[in-house]
Design a protein around this nucleic acid. Structure first.
Length: 505
RNA sequence: GGCCCAAUAGUCUAGAGGCCUAGGACGCCGCCCUCUCAAGGCGGUAGCACGGGUUCGAAUCCCGUUUGGGCCA
């Protein structure tokens, strides 16, 4: 195979959509797999909507995902610039050549005239197709139009018989009747190229060998093939990816919730997890293997295992995938990821000491397998920090409501204060001894102590929790909770609160 | 409306004529483990859109219908 050169060519009209991220990923992987080059360029000829800000957002998102490009914005390359709006001269040169070679012609029909014809066709239940009105204008007629102040668009001459065949790596051979095509516009009267023209000129100029893009472009491909033909250029290979859809099988849009890579970043999704999830949307390795790193994927990915059916974006599975990556993340890395979110939640200061960082790592070891997204971190580990805890009313009602609870808590506090080394197994022994001396089951001590110290009913094993919460903090919270219970504070809160549990003994 | 693509459980997928009484995963349900919640282990739920062909034999090939998606308008 000749040098593989692929491109991701987004239109900068918003943030990076997850469907587009998958397209970028497949291109990136294909380039890696075949030792090729991955090019990024912005198709910003739709001046109304395209924006610099959007381009920036897309660049940031691609960087965050780790989909680096060999040529493109910010990195440059031999075929730049990589914004179509900066390549207008090029399109004009190509267009002029086609005009000279009489493969394209000037069209002076105004939008109003075309619209009228379109309506007439619709009324007659006929598909609208530009009939080549201006194909055979004489020089004099053209001059007359220009004198009226009309500016021409440029149309490509398309044969009206025969077929064009798209040889697609994924769809197979797809053929289109030329009869359904018309002499489409390649340069608009305002001097800007149309999508199908600029795209082909760029792919040709940039020596793109494989065009891997979403299926929505399949219907554009016959037109593009006509442009290649007119340019006497060799078309690249095409591969049209199935679409990524919303749960209701419509196009994934804002009303379905998060659609942008950036939103998933904010939700606490890891880039590796998002990439892995996206990889499985339309591609599979053996039908069984699911956890595949980018590195691994870049060795085994290929187009022949891309399927042809549209896929629904399933957030539940993404969350599961994220959990897989969080579970197995190295603690050091996880800690670094989580610090900003803890700071934001006010659990930790922005800057923490090395000692605190180390303690955080040990805390994370306890909860990493129950964390599905990074932003669950504050709720999961907030109680390891600070003086006081917030009590979940339901937890208080369920575990602290009994009349014997204050005694149990104080007894536990006393015994823990007198304990030897503050280690998990020592803590465990003390708690079990406390239960024994009180003549109750261990669970009757464990549950109230957990709620008194952490404020919630759920969490890792209690002895590990107490160990890392720390002796002083543990004892302080136990005594304080006992006192507040005696004063009727905590229970009163519950009685007045909306969540009144059964209040078990 | 015209053209194009597709069709395996709620979702992602394996399957390229007999290996399929259809495999894996998410979700959901149950059990085990257990100080709780997770995690983990075990088990379960649920599918070849429909109708015709071809063939000794079809999830797999062909045609049609239906449904979904895309492009153009």
């Amino acid at each position: 195979m000749a040098l593989v050169r692929v491109r991701y060519a987004p239109s900068p009209t918003g943030s990076l959509h997850v469907g587009n991220a998958r397209t970028a990923l497949f291109n990136w992987l294909f380039a890696r797999r075949h030792g090729g080059r991955f090019v990024v360029r912005f198709e910003d000829t739709d001046t109304e909507r395209a924006g610099e800000e959007a381009a920036r957002a897309i660049i940031v998102a691609l960087r965050w995902l780790g989909l680096t490009w060999d040529e493109g914005p910010e990195v440059g390359g031999p075929y730049g610039p990589y914004f179509q709006s900066m390549r207008l001269d090029l399109y004009r040169r190509y267009a002029e050549r086609l005009l000279l070679q009489e493969r394209a012609y000037e069209c002076y029909c105004t939008p109003e005239e075309l619209e009228a014809r379109r309506r007439r066709a619709q009324a007659g239940r006929r598909p609208f197709r530009y009939e080549g009105t201006c194909r055979h204008l004489t020089d004099a007629e053209r001059a007359a139009c220009r004198r009226q102040g009309r500016r021409p668009a440029l149309r490509l001459m398309v044969p009206d018989t025969g077929t064009v065949e798209v040889h697609d790596r994924i769809k197979g051979t797809v053929s289109f009747d030329n009869a359904v095509l018309d002499d489409f516009v390649i340069m608009k009267s305002d001097g800007w190229p149309t999508y199908n023209f600029a795209c082909v000129v760029d792919d040709h100029e940039m020596r793109i060998s494989h065009v891997i893009r979403a299926e929505e472009h399949l219907s554009n491909t016959p037109k593009q093939l006509h442009v290649y033909r007119a340019l006497e250029a060799e078309p690249p290979e095409f591969a049209h990816l199935p679409m990524v859809l919303a749960p209701d099988r419509s196009k994934l849009s804002k009303r379905h919730g998060a659609t942008a890579v950036e939103e998933y970043r904010q939700m606490g999704i890891l880039p590796q997890a998002l990439l892995n999830y996206l990889l499985l949307l339309g591609w599979s390795y053996d039908g069984t293997t699911e956890i595949i790193s980018l590195e691994e994927a870049s060795r085994i990915f290929d187009l022949d295992r891309v399927n042809r059916t549209n896929a629904v974006f399933d957030e539940d599975k993404l969350l599961w995938m994220n959990h897989q990556y969080i579970k197995t993340a190295r603690l050091h890395r996880l800690a670094r990821l989580v610090v900003p979110r803890l700071a934001e939640a006010g659990v930790l200061p922005d800057m923490i000491t090395l000692g605190e960082f180390r303690r955080l790592r040990r805390i994370l070891a306890l909860i990493q397998e129950r964390m599905h997204t990074l932003n669950e971190a504050p709720a999961l580990i907030g109680y390891f920090f600070g003086d006081d805890v917030e009590y979940d009313p339901a937890a208080v009602a369920r575990r602290l409501a009994g009349p014997e609870v204050p005694d149990i808590l104080e007894r536990a506090a006393d015994n823990l204060a007198a304990a030897g080394d503050w280690k998990p197994d020592v803590v465990e022994q003390v708690i079990r001894d406390t239960a024994a001396s009180l003549g109750v089951k261990a669970a009757q001590v464990i549950h109230p102590v957990r709620v008194a110290v952490t404020g919630v009913m759920v969490g890792p094993g209690l002895f590990d929790v107490l160990h890392l919460v720390g002796r002083e903090r543990t004892i302080r919270r136990l005594r304080r909770a006992a006192a507040r219970l005696r004063a009727g504070e905590l229970v009163a809160t519950v009685a007045a609160g909306p969540t009144d549990g059964p209040g078990s003994p």
